[in-house]
Computed example of a mutant assay.
Amino acid sequence: MSPRTRNLLFGALGLAVVVVTFAVVLPRIASYRDVWDAVKTLDGRWIGALAVAVVLNIATMAPPWMIALPGLRFRQALPFTQASTAFTYIAPGGGIVGMAGSYGLLRTWGFRSNEVARAVTLTGVWNQLANLLLPVLAVTLLSVEGARDALLTTAAVVGAAVFTVVVGALAVVLWRDSFARAVGDLASRIASRLLAIVRKGPATGWAESFVTFRRTTVDLIRRRWAWLTIAAIVGNVTVFAVLLVSLRAVGTDSAEVTGIEAFAAWSLARVLQLIPLTPGGVGPVELGLTSILVGFGGPNAEVVAAVLLYRALTVVPTLLLGLATMGAWRWLGPGRVREGVAPGAGNPPGG
């Protein structure tokens, strides 16, 4: 099967998932007329609360990149995060597409390749590790309430196992120069074999590049791991806040779905979003989130309304801002200040 055929089949499968989700499954859970009736109950107070939640969600995307890439200011980090996140919504591939887009955008602003690679790696790893640990935290909180969910428990076990493997592998690579050099040699040999297929020269210098990358990364982690962790936690909390406010805004109160139950459903939806079947996880996320919330006791129409509202408010603003940012990218250059040159360049955001 040719790559073109495979991509077409993959795209067709993703489209089928989206169509089935929105045209078949969700309408069976609640008719869109009932969903619209629930949305129409929003008053000015809840609309204001939703607006605040959306603004906080967008604003908290910037700090992790400011921490991981010294010299990147908030006024550049904010539009940059919108543009890089927008990549994940317009093409299948999820985080991989977003990471590639982030690398390309930052390189056009003049940041060195090793700095950008380090920032992309750290923000990506921290974000994915947070996603893997969310179901673990959710199951723990549910157990405190005396509730259980088999799907969430399974996701928590898998997430904990993957988390352990990823952290262990990262620790090994960053532990000593010899390990980083060995990984660099292996990557160089693999790349050279691939290049030979297209009659290109061998990949050289990768071993020492990995060693340099390891040293600078370890140094940054030692100085900023706490700030990076806090920023990742705050960023995830603001995303969840959009869902929780959406639930309460359409009339789903804590007697029907508690905050912990909403968090548990949301944590699984974050894991589903990692599956690169559709852009941004459109389809699987809505279906999984709706099913779990209804299973916890949420009213069908109100839950579907809240889920669709949540997804619209977390995707559409970023998509529009991201596309606008990409259109104006050449005029958004950072006027860059390097760490160690300008006062305060090495401080965490707000420092």
Rank of each mutant, 00 (worst) to 15 (best):
E261F: 06
E261N: 07
T252G: 10
A226V: 14
T216W: 05
I230P: 03
A255W: 11
V218P: 05
L247Q: 02
R223K: 15
I230V: 15
W227M: 03
D253Y: 04
I260P: 07
T252R: 00
S209Q: 14
F263G: 13
G235C: 02
S246T: 08
A231F: 11
G259R: 05
V218W: 12
V237F: 14
L220C: 12
F210D: 04
D219V: 06
A241W: 11
F213K: 04
T238F: 13
R215P: 03
R248D: 00
G251K: 11
T258C: 00
L244Q: 09
A226I: 13
L243A: 08
T258K: 00
R214G: 00
I230Y: 10
A241T: 02
R224F: 05
R215F: 08
D219A: 14
T252H: 01
R248C: 02
A255T: 10
I260G: 06
S254A: 15
T229W: 10
V257W: 02
L243E: 07
R214D: 01
L247D: 01
D219R: 14
S254D: 14
V234T: 01
V237C: 11
R222E: 14
T252L: 02
A231I: 06
R222H: 14
V211L: 09
A232Q: 13
I233H: 03
I233V: 15
A232K: 04
V237R: 06
N236S: 10
L228Q: 13
F210Q: 02
T217D: 09
V237A: 15
L247K: 02
I221N: 07
I221V: 15
T229A: 15
L247M: 05
S246Q: 10
E256C: 01
R248M: 05
R214V: 00
I233D: 02
W225R: 15
R215C: 04
F240S: 01
T238H: 03
F263P: 07
I233A: 11
I233S: 01
S246L: 10
V237E: 05
V239D: 11
F263N: 08
G259Y: 04
L228V: 03
A241N: 03
W225K: 14
V250I: 13
E256R: 13
A249Y: 10
D253L: 06
L247H: 00
I260C: 05
V218R: 15
T258I: 02
T212Q: 08
V218Y: 10
L243R: 07
W225A: 15
R214N: 00
I221G: 10
L247T: 00
D253S: 13
L243S: 05
S209N: 13
T238A: 09
D253T: 10
V245I: 13
G251H: 07
W227N: 07
S209T: 14
V237D: 04
V242Q: 05
G251D: 09
V245M: 06
E261I: 05
I233L: 12
W227Q: 12
